[in-house]
Design a protein around this nucleic acid. Structure first.
Length: 970
RNA sequence: GCCGACUUAGCUCAGUGGUAGAGCACUCGCUUCACACGCGAUAGGCCACAAGUUCGAAUCUUGUAGUCGGCACCA
């Protein structure tokens, strides 16, 4: 078979995904084993407004690697996809569209029409990300795709809300909340970010005290007889003084304690406010006197509660001043009002001073507008009991287990310990409308439906709460609401029974399709919850992960997931987080086009778990090259495939399995002498098996980058650079022999198994090549998928945890001997390069080694001769080499390359000397260590012995090299 | 302010107590019949700095400096 000289990713990416999906390979139903263990992951639902970014690509790669491996291991595997309705984001898109297309505001078309248009928007644009996920090769079960506003998920939301309300875990109340004047909605604490401002100002305002003559100056200006005339307060938000209802001082503050109980004449208003004493005030800070605005500051609110102060709200929802701020200020923007307040204080001589003040301002996470703390009537979730549930889970079962554990476990726990109530209402139209209704008097009736609420009210005329729930409220249910829990339709079923089929249904099972999903659907919750692992970024551990843990536990009494893998951040090339404003983003789709999906995926997987990484095109290029390497190794197979095919028995180090087993495995049944393993065969199989073991260990510990490194090294260095070169002559031999067929088949089998090992990382190229390899087919599938059409996706993932325990995995003798062969080849190549002996000139090579080692080199003499381009190769115990020879030494051999007429003696001396120098450096260190009494005394005996052996070895080599050098000087 | 992470070859990064590794770049050589997206051979590190623990430290402890996060903030 002829295939292209270079790998073209596009070609492979075009058709396989479509087939995988339409054949149903992604669904758990593909698994024929009723007793198969399950493996499940729910995707962090991307926003419907989103398009694929590098963070998604990273997380999806990790999830796909996990899922594909488990599927190949025979697990009943579900990776569930879906999207989030993204309240504010979608709302904003629709508002913009409305404004642009029709110059209308939402209120012009009304709520119902607005929501209808939001759905239209979602239908039109919401598939962007799901299509991009197909491009990524994500093996998600599209038949179970969910959206947070699906009917059953919405039912779940209402049920959860009502239950929590009934149990007193949800309440409505007046609190100081974070208000975004641009989005005109309340935000939870987590949606508010701090922004450092260096240009802040601290204003010192002088408040006159009643019954005092006009104020003259000083922090607490006093008249001649010592009576205090005014009190100065400091503030960063002067406009809020219009809402002041008190001034507070610390009761222990000697300066002011006599003022407590007196009255302030609040400037710019006609109000009189009291001076109160409160421990909250820090006498050391500012002036020691604090203006109290209970409706616009959380701390002031507390003070207000304690002193029963009036709460005067002075702003509208867009942060303009309202009527309560007085006629001079009504309608002004808060910042305009600020300037005007300051100006008026100055006119009145009441502005004591203005200081520069560095501070941090709370801003809206999405629109960066300065958030206004404001008194508002909102819905909250009381978090104390939920927090305790999550903390118990962590303390008693150490769940979830974070990877990396440090620092996330600690940060997560600390955050829980300081958790405050969660503001869940949002003043939007797009989302889950709060299932609460009000009568004309404002009494609230919470119900799952309007009818239920009305019944509770005794049939009164009701209107539903206009607000919707925080997007994260529905996402918090994602782990179980997506698996069929809606709170009123779920009937627990026996997990096992779900997979039972009545007799006679076996045939139907043959062409199992998505249709009998109904058989499974009711029990998805029992089957797949808890999910096994959650893969996500740091930014939503609190926002999403923690809430899902709590809500899942609360409503299903199950864990949401056992493990959490926290991925790092993919930074731009400048080392800063990718963002539109910095314009340092790297589009995954561009990378797919440029280097291929597989190369991008495996590069992302090669990043250490949890570590941030600066994006680096060269890294992807490396794996693009790797793909090409694999392509060409396979191409070599296919160019020499006559009479050959995959034969698993050719990879057995030990005795072959019995005949019946051999047939079952699809072996080609080679026999006799040709079947015998050569040293390179034993070595490469041993390396493959060890790599397999190590890859599985690494993946089970979520060390994806380690697994990538292992496979990369095996494939490129060991399989291609060494083994392929060693067996090339045999494989390309002109003579058609069984020996040649076995060599070809063994190489094909090695490639085939390595492709399976690699498949979870590089699904497209591995499938493309696997399909081309002779002898691949469903018989290589894991036994759970024997009826499925052939695909590497369902081939058994290489492992040694069970199949043939009598078959040894590794051959350490072969690894040692092969190491000796490799050493010799490298030394001779080094001589060639250093002495400028071109490869085109064949040389004579003499290998001097103990008699019991002769076979190592003799058995491989042809390969060695080829790889160093030797015209003759002598292997003896004692060789007297000509003086004009270049020499080297390895662990078990002395090498001479006679170079009469070609050798440059100076260069050879230099070469020998540099080898001696290098060894001497190590020798000195070893000597130092071994002559250190305390080392010999305290270090483990094995260690000391190891060093002694190494010392002897180096001494021997140095001696030989010195002899060589002397011989040269004679 | 509190907590944390990071600092290893020119670059991007692996490496959690026992001779410092990879990829790319660099140098030298190769139209070796799978691959120049390749092959072969070199060179290149006081593992940020200091002190400590240890027979032994890139690795553990403490401190310092720099970089970057998270959380909380006094008007």
């Amino acid at each position: 078979m002829e295939i292209a000289k270079a790998y073209d990713p596009k070609q492979a990416e075009e058709h396989h995904y479509q087939r995988w999906e339409s054949e149903g390979f992604f669904t758990p139903e593909i698994n024929e084993d009723l007793d198969a263990k399950k493996y499940s992951i729910v995707i962090p639902p991307p926003n419907v407004t989103g398009s694929l970014h590098m963070g998604h690509a990273l997380q999806h790669t990790i999830m796909d690697v996990l899922t594909r491996r488990k599927r190949m291991q025979g697990y009943r595997t579900l990776w569930l996809p879906g999207t989030d309705h993204a309240g504010i984001s979608v709302q904003r898109k629709v508002v913009e569209q409305l404004k642009k297309d029709e110059h209308k505001k939402p209120t012009d078309i009304g709520r119902e029409e607005f929501v209808r248009r939001a759905w239209t928007w979602k239908e039109q644009y919401g598939n962007t990300i799901t299509e991009q996920m197909r491009r990524e090769g994500a093996s998600v079960d599209w038949t179970r795709q969910r959206f947070t506003m699906d009917e059953s998920l919405s039912t779940a939301v209402r049920n959860v809300f009502c239950t929590l309300y009934e149990e007193g875990w949800i309440y409505k109340g007046l609190r100081i909340v974070n208000w975004c004047p641009k989005d005109k909605t309340v935000l939870s604490d987590l949606e508010v970010k701090e922004e450092a401002r260096k240009d802040g100002k601290l204003y010192y305002l002088r408040y006159p005290i009643k019954s005092s003559p006009p104020v003259l100056g000083g922090v607490a200006a006093a008249s001649a007889d010592g009576v205090v005339l005014s009190l100065t307060v400091a503030t960063t938000r002067p406009e809020t003084m219009l809402g002041d209802t008190a001034v507070a001082v610390n009761p222990k503050d000697e300066r002011y304690k006599d003022l407590i109980g007196k009255t302030i004449l609040l400037p710019l208003t006609d109000r009189e406010i009291p001076i109160v004493g409160d421990e909250y005030v820090d006498a050391e800070f500012g002036t020691g006197a604090v203006k109290i605005t209970p409706a616009h500051d959380p701390n002031d609110y507390q003070v207000g509660e304690r002193h029963n102060l009036e709460r005067l709200l002075i702003m509208n929802e867009d942060a303009t001043m309202n009527a309560a701020a007085g006629p001079d200020f009504e309608g002004l923007d808060r910042f305009v009002a600020r300037a005007k307040v300051v100006e008026r204080f100055e006119e009145l001589g009441l502005l004591e001073k203005v200081e520069d003040y560095e501070m941090t301002l709370p801003v809206c996470e999405r629109c960066k507008t300065v958030v206004e703390p404001i008194l508002s009537d909102q819905w909250f979730v009381k978090m104390d009991e939920m927090r305790d549930m999550a903390l118990d889970l962590m303390r008693s079962e150490a769940v979830p287990h974070f990877s990396p554990q440090v620092p996330h476990e600690k940060v997560y726990t600390a955050w829980l310990e300081n958790l405050k109530d969660w503001t869940i209402s949002r003043q939007l139209w797009w989302g889950h409308q709060i299932p609460a209704w009000y009568d004309a008097d404002g009494n609230v009736f919470v119900g799952r439906t309007a009818e239920e609420a009305q019944a509770k009210s005794g049939g009164r005329e009701l209107t539903q709460d206009q607000d919707v729930l925080d997007t994260w409220f529905s996402s918090g249910l994602w782990a179980f609401s997506t698996l069929g829990w809606s709170g009123d339709t779920h009937v627990p079923t026996d997990a096992a029974s779900a997979f039972e089929r009545s007799p006679g249904e076996d045939e139907a099972a043959e062409n199992r399709s998505l249709e009998d999903k109904s058989v499974l659907a009711p029990s998805d919750l029992d089957t797949f919850l808890p999910t096994d692992v959650l893969v996500t970024g740091r930014d939503i551990i609190f926002l999403w992960v923690s809430r899902m843990i709590m809500l899942t536990k609360k409503f299903t009494d199950k864990k949401a997931f056992e493990d959490v893998i926290v991925t790092g951040t993919v930074l731009g090339k400048d080392g800063k987080p990718m963002s539109k404003s910095r314009n340092n983003g790297v589009d995954p789709l561009e990378m797919f086009d440029k280097f291929g999906v597989d190369a991008t995926r495996i590069y992302l997987a090669s990043i250490a778990t949890g570590a941030d990484i600066k994006w680096n095109d060269v890294g992807v290029e490396t794996y693009r090259n790797f793909a090409n390497k694999i392509w060409n190794a396979t191409r070599f197979c296919l160019m020499n495939a006559d009479g050959a095919g995959v034969d698993p028995t050719l990879l057995f180090l030990g005795p072959a399995p019995d005949a019946s087993k051999v047939k079952e495995m699809g072996a080609l049944a080679f026999t006799g002498e040709a079947f015998k393993l050569s040293l390179p065969d034993r070595w490469i199989i041993s390396r493959l098996n060890q790599t397999t073991v190590d890859v599985n260990v690494a993946l089970s510990k979520y060390q994806f980058h380690t697994a990538v490194g292992l496979i990369f090294h095996f494939f490129w260095d060991e399989l291609c650079d060494w083994y392929l070169e060693l067996v090339k002559d045999e494989i390309t031999s002109e003579i058609d022999s069984e020996r040649r067929q076995v060599a070809r088949s063994r190489f094909i089998s090695l490639i085939e198994r390595a492709l399976r090992l690699l498949h979870p990382f590089m699904p497209f190229i591995t499938e493309e090549l696997w399909q081309k390899l002779p002898g691949t087919g469903s018989h290589l599938h894991h036994k759970s998928y024997s009826g499925a059409p052939p695909t590497i996706m369902l081939a058994e993932y290489p492992d040694f945890s069970g199949s043939f325990p009598e078959n040894p995995n590794t051959d350490l003798a072969a690894e040692t001997e092969m190491g000796a062969v490799i050493d010799v080849i490298k030394k001779v190549r080094n001589i060639r390069t250093e002495l400028n002996i071109p490869f085109s000139i064949p040389v004579e090579v003499l290998i001097e080694t103990d008699i019991h080692n002769h076979h190592i080199f003799r058995d491989n003499n042809l390969q060695i001769a080829k790889l160093v381009r030797a015209k003759t190769l002598r292997i003896e115990s004692n060789i007297l080499a000509p003086k004009a020879s270049a020499k080297s030494v390895t662990g078990i051999a002395r090498i001479s390359v006679p170079l009469e007429g070609l050798i440059d003696f100076d260069k050879e001396r230099e070469r020998l000397q540099s080898q001696i120098d290098k060894l001497n450096v190590e020798l000195q260190r070893l000597n130092g260590q071994l002559s250190n009494a305390s080392f010999v005394e305290k270090a483990p005996a094995e260690k000391a012995q190891e060093l002694r052996e190494r010392q002897a070895e180096i001494e021997r080599q140095v001696k030989v090299l010195n002899q060589n050098l002397e011989a040269l000087n004679k």
